[in-house]
Simulated scan of single mutants.
Amino acid sequence: MHRATRSVRLIVLCLAAMLLPGCGVERSTPRPDHDLKQTVALCPGVNVSGPGDPAGAGRVAKFYRALAEPVYKAACADDAGRLAHLIDTGSAGAQHFESNACQGCNGGEIVAMWRDDYRLDLAELARLLETPPRWSQGGPAYIRGNRLATFSRGWMGVPAFWSAFYPDCQAEEDCELASELATSP
């Protein structure tokens, strides 16, 4: 009798586990390509079109597409770790990455600040990079509402890099100045 009771309990536990959301054969974890297809549909691509190159097909546009695309893809995928890595390993590193105040922060701390202090959904960074950039001698600046992201063309042996992202431009004087310069004719 004791053996039968244990077997019944085991069967009941197995059946209960199968009824839990996400459990069982019918509700298995989505295939990796499932998420990729959804991301592709929601993320049409970084925009590098600009004056004199409306299709974004020129040499300069290709250069900046290669630079901005990893940032865009990480933001679309909500991959905070990848964004932090891009900040830390960029030509200038986290110590020269411009953002809202975060003294001595590494890339992970900067991205955490965007999420925690500014309630930024990383998809908002991707949407920003879908807008047409404003071009300056230093590189493209993306401005949308109160947000600004810039990419630097590099200089004197320093390769091009993702140079700044401000989730709240009004809170930083440097961001407001960069925004004004990017929007002036």
Score class of each variant (00 low, 15 high):
2 H>M: 08
5 T>E: 14
6 R>D: 11
6 R>Y: 12
7 S>L: 15
9 R>M: 14
10 L>A: 15
10 L>D: 12
12 V>K: 10
12 V>G: 10
14 C>G: 15
17 A>L: 15
17 A>F: 13
20 L>V: 04
22 G>F: 05
23 C>Y: 08
24 G>T: 02
24 G>N: 03
25 V>A: 12
25 V>T: 13
26 E>W: 11
26 E>S: 11
27 R>Q: 13
27 R>E: 12
31 R>E: 11
33 D>M: 05
33 D>S: 12
34 H>Y: 13
35 D>H: 13
35 D>G: 13
36 L>Q: 12
38 Q>G: 01
39 T>W: 02
40 V>R: 12
41 A>K: 14
42 L>Y: 03
42 L>T: 07
45 G>V: 00
46 V>Q: 02
46 V>K: 00
47 N>Y: 09
49 S>Y: 07
50 G>Q: 00
50 G>A: 08
51 P>D: 12
53 D>V: 10
55 A>N: 13
55 A>H: 09
56 G>A: 08
57 A>N: 14
58 G>T: 09
58 G>M: 06
59 R>L: 10
59 R>S: 11
60 V>I: 15
60 V>W: 05
61 A>H: 00
64 Y>G: 01
67 L>P: 03
67 L>G: 02
68 A>C: 08
72 Y>D: 01
73 K>H: 09
74 A>V: 10
75 A>S: 07
77 A>L: 08
79 D>C: 01
80 A>H: 04
81 G>H: 03
84 A>H: 08
86 L>Y: 06
87 I>R: 07
91 S>V: 03
94 A>T: 05
94 A>W: 05
95 Q>K: 15
96 H>K: 14
96 H>Q: 11
96 H>T: 04
97 F>R: 03
99 S>A: 14
99 S>M: 05
101 A>D: 14
102 C>S: 08
106 N>R: 14
106 N>M: 11
113 M>F: 13
113 M>T: 12
116 D>G: 07
118 Y>M: 08
121 D>R: 01
122 L>D: 02
122 L>R: 05
123 A>V: 12
124 E>L: 12
125 L>T: 03
125 L>I: 06
126 A>G: 05
128 L>H: 02
128 L>W: 04
128 L>I: 03
130 E>L: 03
131 T>H: 06
131 T>G: 07
135 W>P: 06
136 S>G: 12
136 S>Y: 00
137 Q>H: 08
137 Q>G: 09
142 Y>V: 04
143 I>K: 01
145 G>Y: 10
145 G>H: 06
146 N>R: 09
146 N>A: 09
147 R>V: 04
149 A>Q: 00
150 T>V: 07
151 F>H: 02
153 R>L: 06
154 G>P: 09
159 P>T: 11
159 P>C: 07
159 P>M: 03
163 S>L: 01
165 F>Q: 01
167 P>A: 02
168 D>H: 06
169 C>P: 03
170 Q>T: 14
170 Q>S: 15
171 A>Y: 02
173 E>M: 13
174 D>K: 10
175 C>L: 10
177 L>H: 14
178 A>E: 07
178 A>R: 06
184 S>E: 11
